[in-house]
C-alpha cells in the first residue's frame, strides 16, 4: 500500500466511509501495528484541530494581535525572578573567590595576561544570550520602576532587536533565495523536457489598482517524452520558501499547453520528429504583494523542477 493509499484509507476510516468488511480488516491491522495506530491518531487529531474553522479564525486573529501588541507594549523591562538569596552563603562564596583570585594573581603575576584573549569569551557569551523577540526601549516602565535596578547575578542581558520598519520588511522581501537562484541557473540543463520561455531577464511586474499583478508567460516545451498528454503546473514561491516542494508554493496553477500538430501527410517529418512540441501562452492575474518571487514549471505527476525563473512585484 502506498503512502497515498494509506492516507486515503485512514481518512475514509475516520470519516466512517469504509464498508463493514474494510473496517474489520483495517481494525485488525490497527490491533497489530502500533505505528499505524499512531498514524491514525495523528490524522484524527489534526482533523479535529485544523477542521474547526472558527478556531482557525480565532488562532489567525490571535497571531495578528500578538504581533500588534508586541510592538505596542514592548516598552517594559524584563524583571528577573528574585532568587531566594542566602546572604551568608553569598558572602562566604565571595570571600572564597577573592582568596582564590589573590592566590592565582600571586602565581601568574610574572606572565601578563593578554586582555583581548580574556575578553573574547565574554563577548561570545553575551552574543549567546537566548534570542528574544521583544523590543526594549530606553524609557523605564512605571509598572516595574520599583523593582531592583541592579542587575542580578543570573540576569542575562536582553538583546535589543531592531524594530522592523516597513522599509526593512520590504528589503527582506527582495533578498535572493539561494536555493531558487541555483534552480534558475540550471535552466537549459533538462534535455527530456526543454522549456524555452520569452520571459524577460530582469522581470518587474507592477501591482495594479485591484492589488493583483498581470502574470504572463509564453513559450514552448520540446519533449522526447512519448506521453500522450503533458500537464504542466506553475508554482510560485516567495523569496522565503525553504524548498521548491509544492507544499511551500504561494500559489499554484496549471499551464495549458497545446501540442503542435504535424501534418499526417508529411511522412518524412513524422518519421524524423524526435520531439513533440507544446506551445503555451498564459495570462493570469495573481494576488501577490511586492517582493521577489520565483516560479517553477513542473509536470503534474512529477515534482522535479524543469524550469525556474524569477520576477519582482513592484508597487504601482
Amino acid at each position: 500500500m502506498s503512502r497515498e493509499e494509506l492516507y486515503h484509507t485512514i481518512e475514509q476510516y475516520l470519516d466512517k466511509q469504509l464498508d463493514a468488511k474494510s473496517i474489520a480488516a483495517f481494525e485488525d491491522r490497527l490491533s497489530k501495528e502500533p505505528e499505524l495506530r499512531q498514524e491514525v491518531e495523528l490524522h484524527r487529531k489534526m482533523q479535529e484541530e485544523l477542521g474547526d474553522p472558527i478556531k482557525r479564525n480565532l488562532r489567525s486573529k490571535l497571531d495578528q494581535l500578538r504581533i500588534e501588541h508586541t510592538l505596542e507594549e514592548s516598552d517594559h523591562k524584563i524583571v528577573p525572578l528574585k532568587p531566594r538569596v542566602n546572604w551568608m552563603k553569598v558572602v562566604s562564596i565571595a570571600a572564597g573567590v577573592l582568596l582564590f583570585g589573590f592566590l592565582i594573581w600571586l602565581l601568574v603575576i610574572k606572565e601578563p595576561v593578554n586582555n583581548e584573549i580574556v575578553e573574547q569569551p565574554k563577548e561570545e557569551e553575551e552574543q549567546k544570550v537566548p534570542p528574544s523577540k521583544e523590543i526594549i526601549k530606553e524609557e523605564p516602565n512605571p509598572i516595574v520602576q520599583d523593582e531592583t535596578p541592579e542587575p542580578k547575578e543570573n540576569e542575562k542581558p536582553s538583546i535589543k532587536d531592531p524594530i522592523k520598519t516597513p522599509v526593512q520588511d520590504a528589503m527582506a522581501s527582495l533578498i535572493p533565495n539561494p536555493l531558487f537562484e541555483n534552480l534558475v541557473s540550471q535552466n537549459g540543463i533538462q534535455k527530456i523536457f526543454e522549456f524555452s520561455l520569452k520571459d524577460p531577464k530582469d522581470w518587474k511586474i507592477p501591482v495594479q489598482a485591484d492589488q493583483s499583478i498581470a502574470f504572463h508567460i509564453s513559450g514552448d516545451l520540446k519533449t522526447t517524452n512519448p506521453e500522450e498528454e503533458t500537464k504542466v503546473m506553475v508554482n510560485v514561491f516567495n523569496n522565503k520558501a525553504i524548498d521548491s516542494d509544492i507544499a511551500q508554493a504561494t500559489t499554484s496553477f496549471s499551464l495549458p499547453v497545446v501540442k503542435e500538430v504535424i501534418d499526417d501527410n508529411d511522412e518524412e517529418e513524422l518519421a524524423f520528429a524526435e520531439k513533440s512540441t507544446y506551445y503555451f501562452n498564459l495570462d493570469k492575474n495573481l494576488k501577490l504583494t511586492p517582493g521577489l518571487y520565483y516560479y517553477t514549471l513542473i509536470l503534474e505527476d512529477n515534482p522535479r523542477v524543469l524550469y525556474c525563473n524569477k520576477f519582482t512585484v513592484t508597487k504601482e
Binding site: E49, L50, A241, Q248, T250
Partner: peptide, 12 residues
C-alpha cells in the same frame, strides 16, 4: 499542529 500548518505554502 497550528504552527506546522502555518509553515505550509499559501496554496497548500
Amino acid at each position: 499542529f497550528w504552527s506546522s500548518f502555518k509553515n505550509l505554502g499559501e496554496d497548500c
